[in-house]
C-alpha cells in the first residue's frame, strides 16, 4: 500500500513536473533557433497552408501505402489504440476529472480491453518489423528500443491490472502508474517528443511549400 501511495503521490508529481518542464524546454530549444527572414515574393500563404498540412499529413500518399504497408497500418492501429486506451477508458477519465474537473463519455470496458490487445499486437508487429526490415534496423538504435519499451509497458501493465492477473491488485496498479511515470519522464528527451514537434514540423513543411504555391 505504501508503494501505491508513493507512486500516486510524490513520484507522480515529480514525473509530471519533469514532463511539463521538459516539453516546454524542448519546444523553446527548437523555437528559439528561429528562421531567417524571407524576402522572396510569396506565391501563396504560409500560415493557412501550414495549418492545413497538419491535418493533410495524416493521410498517407497513395503511392507509399503499398510499399510502407506494415509501417502505416501498424502505426495507425497503435496510435489510435493508444488514444482509445488512454482517453476513452472510464477509470482514466475519472482520474482526469479528479485533477482537471472535466469529463467526457468513455467506451465500455470490454471494448477498451479488445482495443488494448489489438494495440499491443500492432506494437509487437512493428517491433518485429523494426528488427527485420533493413532500413528500419539500420536506422534504429538504443533510443528506438527504449521508447518502444516505455510505451509498451503501461499498456501491458494496465491490461494485466484490469484482468487482475497479478495479485495483490494495488501492487500491479502501482507498477502500472510507475510505468506511466517512466513514459512521462522519457518522453521530452527522446523521439517520443514527436507527439508535440509533429505539429511544428508539419506546419513548417506546409508553410514552405504553400508559400511557393506548390503542393506539399
Amino acid at each position: 500500500m505504501d508503494f501505491l501511495l508513493w507512486v500516486r503521490g510524490p513520484a507522480f508529481d515529480v514525473a509530471v513536473a519533469i514532463f511539463l518542464i521538459g516539453v516546454v524546454a524542448r519546444l523553446f530549444e527548437i523555437l528559439l533557433l528561429g528562421r531567417k527572414p524571407l524576402h522572396s515574393e510569396p506565391k501563396g500563404g504560409e500560415f493557412g497552408n501550414g495549418m492545413a498540412e497538419i491535418f493533410k499529413r495524416s493521410v498517407p500518399l497513395p503511392d507509399i501505402v503499398k510499399r510502407g504497408a506494415v509501417t502505416l497500418v501498424g502505426g495507425y492501429v497503435f496510435h489510435i489504440g493508444l488514444f482509445i486506451t488512454i482517453f476513452l477508458f472510464v477509470p482514466h477519465i475519472e482520474l482526469i476529472n479528479s485533477i482537471f474537473g472535466v469529463r467526457w463519455p468513455g467506451l465500455p470496458n470490454p471494448v477498451v480491453d479488445g482495443v488494448t490487445v489489438v494495440t499491443m499486437v500492432a506494437m509487437v508487429v512493428l517491433l518485429v518489423h523494426r528488427l527485420l526490415q533493413p532500413v528500419k534496423r539500420m536506422l534504429s538504435g538504443f533510443e528506438d528500443y527504449l521508447t518502444w519499451v516505455v510505451t509498451f509497458l503501461p499498456i501491458l501493465t494496465g491490461w494485466i491490472a484490469y484482468h487482475r492477473l497479478v495479485n495483490p491488485y494495488p501492487l500491479i496498479l502501482g507498477i502500472h502508474i510507475l510505468t506511466v511515470e517512466l513514459l512521462l519522464i522519457v518522453l521530452p528527451f527522446t523521439k517520443l517528443m514527436h507527439a508535440f514537434t509533429l505539429f511544428l514540423s508539419r506546419w513548417y513543411n506546409g508553410a514552405v511549400y504553400g508559400r511557393r504555391g506548390v503542393q506539399s
Binding site: R26, I30, G68, L72, Q133, V135, K136, L139, T197, S201
Partner: peptide, 11 residues
C-alpha cells in the same frame, strides 16, 4: 523540429 520529430519509421 524535424530532427526532434523523426521516429525512424523508414518511410
Amino acid at each position: 523540429s524535424y530532427f526532434s520529430s523523426c521516429v525512424h519509421c523508414g518511410l
